[in-house]
Design a protein around this nucleic acid. Structure first.
Length: 645
RNA sequence: CGGGACGUAGCGCAGCCUGGUAGCGCACUUGCUUGGGGUGCAAGGGGUCGCGAGUUCAAAUCUCGCCGUCCCGACCA
């Protein structure tokens, strides 16, 4: 299912209300501003903004290069960054927006980053999470870890404190540092080992209540990202092998991203790669040969699909691709550590030019992981050599045993495998496949007629250009960054950790939970990725470290200097965050720096002061206009307001 | 975890192949100059050449080990 992101609230409400709303916002802004940032006018000559002409050689993606060049961040180690003055200001502004919006629906907590092992044992995740979790020992040798996410800790509070349905629903959130020992930190702030996350958790009596909490988060997230000036899409996401019913991701398209988003421009369908489906164009089947029964053909040394197709003069789409896996049981590393990891054979058939989406497969067969079969396993299940394996002659597990991990219920025939037929093969006839015999393939093979399977399902990855499942138009695939994720958790944690409340009837029930995350630094990164050029980047005033930079183009000129100073003070008085570039530098240097560091508006104070004019430059378009000095405060305030989140 | 590359001044790099005690641009300091898109001139300061062993009269340079960082892949509850 697809839910299109709602329009920004400021676009959908009447202008009078909008003005009122912004008035309130700026009042709040003034209040919180005065609390958290005592000065709103800073002199460049006095603050630390170490801009660089060149990016470090290590940096690859635009946001990384620019964050370093603009003096926002400095690297301490792989995936570990220090935030300097500008970087911290931008982060704090993002956090302020997140907090303002989250406070409308929930309550802010602050949980420990340092967690004892026990609580993670209870949910089973001490073992499940594996190497991604930073672990340490205290002086007594007790195991601790650094928080990775906080479902366990929040659920612990819930189970100790929540007793009655009257206390529900609850939405609790925090803005906290998370630690993940990423196998490969990369792309600047995009994939790091320490980062700031807003994580929220909801507790409801029933699924209907969860729907409400989930929807509140959906709307809140849209407001947050709108206010941050991001262009994003909301996509249906894979909920993970660990359960959960529904989940959606908020994505910003950028080549720097690591996730793939499948979307349709025609109707708005969007989903991530693990969830996306498509309509494939009809394929012309081969004509049967002979009596139409499978026919052995000699294909010496032609194991790979491409080789076979070329050898036989057919297209890969006439071929059945065979992929043989051993699937591994979920939960083997549970809290009791009960049992070893079980494995069962899962064999997939799909069109020769299609590829398996392992995440879809995992979900289908309820496995934690799959690995390719080894040569001797291939021999066992196919009774033929790798490269020439195919569907005929397999022992097939019945559909009832799909996802069955109780080995006692497995078929007596230890060759029996779960056989999955990709839906793309349904209706196809007279295909080519491996014969389970060295150097031989089969012709005239029709799924369902010539071989059985456990189940037919969608387990392939969508390719760009295939038909949208909703409207049939060509699908596109873009890379994107995930900036937020909302997730119906269900009962996983409340059940496993024993959270119970009494319902109306005095009956003990587990609350149903949701969890909802936003990556603070990823908002900054995504914003830069979507708004940059060769000279730098620009942020929405809502998240920029300053609303405006006032450049005195010649600090040696008394008149220019004092006008710049007065303008800066005036803007500060109007509640704007102002950076006054009072350095004794050449104008060119100041313009380059101003363009680099992400500030949305610039005022050039120069020769035209004699005509009572200064120049206002929008960083996003580089459009400039002359404005009367007497009108500058009002002019800038309006500009910031129009573009404010 | 598999594959690849790199590590020399704050940043970007040369020097390494062929061993002889470290250099360029930017940045920084001082002075003059210039003043609307990284001004010009002059004089300066700054480097355990990632770390540790080894070879050698002599190691940034050759050898071995380690550490770190980045890229591709795998992985990403």
């Amino acid at each position: 299912m697809y839910i299109s992101p709602p329009k920004s609230p400021r676009l959908s409400v009447p202008s009078r209300q909008s003005a009122l709303w912004h008035h309130l916002q700026s009042s709040i802004r003034l209040l919180t501003g005065s609390l958290t940032m005592l000065r709103t006018m800073h002199r460049w000559s006095e603050v630390f903004i170490p801009t660089l002409r060149e990016a470090p050689a290590d940096a690859e993606v635009a946001s990384h290069k620019l964050l370093v060049r603009a003096g926002y961040i400095r690297q301490l180690g792989a995936g570990i960054y220090s935030f300097l003055f500008l970087g911290n200001r931008a982060s704090q502004k993002i956090i302020r927006i997140v907090r303002e919006e989250m406070d409308k629906i929930g309550q802010e907590f602050y949980l420990p980053a340092l967690n004892p092992r026990d609580i993670w044992e209870e949910s089973g995740r001490w073992a499940v999470i594996g190497e991604s979790m930073f672990r340490l020992k205290d002086r007594k040798g007790a195991d601790l870890c650094l928080g990775f996410t906080h479902e366990e800790i929040m659920t612990d509070i819930a189970r100790k404190e929540l007793r009655s349905y009257k206390q529900l629903p609850q939405i609790w959130y925090q803005i906290q540092t998370k630690f993940r020992d990423e196998p490969r930190p990369k792309s600047g702030l995009l994939r790091v080992r320490q980062f700031t996350m807003k994580d929220a958790y909801s507790f409801d009596m029933d699924a209907a209540g969860l729907d409400v909490s989930y929807q509140k988060h959906y709307e809140t997230y849209c407001r947050i990202f709108d206010r941050c000036g991001l262009k994003y899409v909301v996509i249906d996401a894979h909920s993970g092998a660990m359960g959960g019913t529904k989940s959606q991701e908020f994505m910003v398209r950028t080549p720097a991203g690591e996730d793939q988003v499948v979307s349709c421009e025609a109707c708005g369908y969007a989903a991530n790669m693990e969830k996306a489906t498509s309509k494939v164009a009809p394929v012309e089947d081969l004509q049967p040969e002979g009596d139409g029964k499978p026919l052995l053909i000699h294909t010496p040394g032609k194991g790979a699909i491409a080789d076979v197709a070329a050898f036989l003069g057919i297209a890969a789409e006439q071929d059945i691709k065979t992929v043989a896996y051993m699937a591994q049981s979920p939960g083997a590393a549970g809290k009791t550590g009960a049992g070893k990891t079980l494995e069962q054979p899962v064999i997939v058939f799909l069109r020769g030019d299609h590829s398996v989406n392992e995440t879809k497969l995992l979900t289908l067969v309820k496995a934690a992981n799959v690995r390719p079969m080894q040569a001797e396993e291939v021999e066992k299940y196919f009774q033929g050599p790798g490269g020439f394996i195919g569907p005929i002659g397999l022992a097939v597990r019945p559909k009832e045993l799909l996802g069955e991990w109780d080995a006692k219920k497995w078929p007596a025939d230890d060759r029996a495998a779960t056989v999955v037929l990709d839906e793309g093969l349904l209706g196809r006839v007279n295909m080519i496949c491996g014969a389970n015999k060295l150097d031989y393939h089969l012709k005239n093979v029709t799924p369902g007629k010539d071989f059985e399977y456990t189940i037919a399902a969608d387990i392939r990855s969508v390719n760009a250009g295939e038909g949208c499942p909703q409207c049939g138009a060509a699908l596109g695939i873009d890379t994107a960054v995930e900036i937020g994720h909302i997730f119906k958790l269900g009962y996983k944690y409340s059940e496993s950790m024993g959270a119970r409340v009494l319902d109306r009837n005095g009956k003990e029930v587990a609350p149903i939970m949701g969890s909802y995350g936003i990556g603070i630094e990823r908002i900054l990164t995504a914003a830069i990725e979507q708004s940059n050029d060769a000279n730098g980047f620009w942020l929405a005033p809502s998240i920029a470290p300053f609303d405006v930079v006032v450049v005195s183009t010649n600090s040696g000129d008394e008149k220019i200097r004092t006008v710049a100073e007065d303008i800066a003070k005036g803007l500060e008085g109007a509640g704007l965050d102002v950076l006054l570039d009072d350095r004794d530098e050449r104008p060119g240097v100041k313009f380059k720096d101003a363009d680099l560091i992400g500030i949305p508006f610039r005022i050039n104070v120069g020769k035209k002061v004699t005509e009572d004019l200064v120049e206002v430059v929008r960083r996003s378009t580089l459009a400039r206009e002359d404005v009367k000095i007497s009108a500058i405060t009002e002019h800038l305030s309006a500009l910031v307001r129009e573009n404010a989140g």
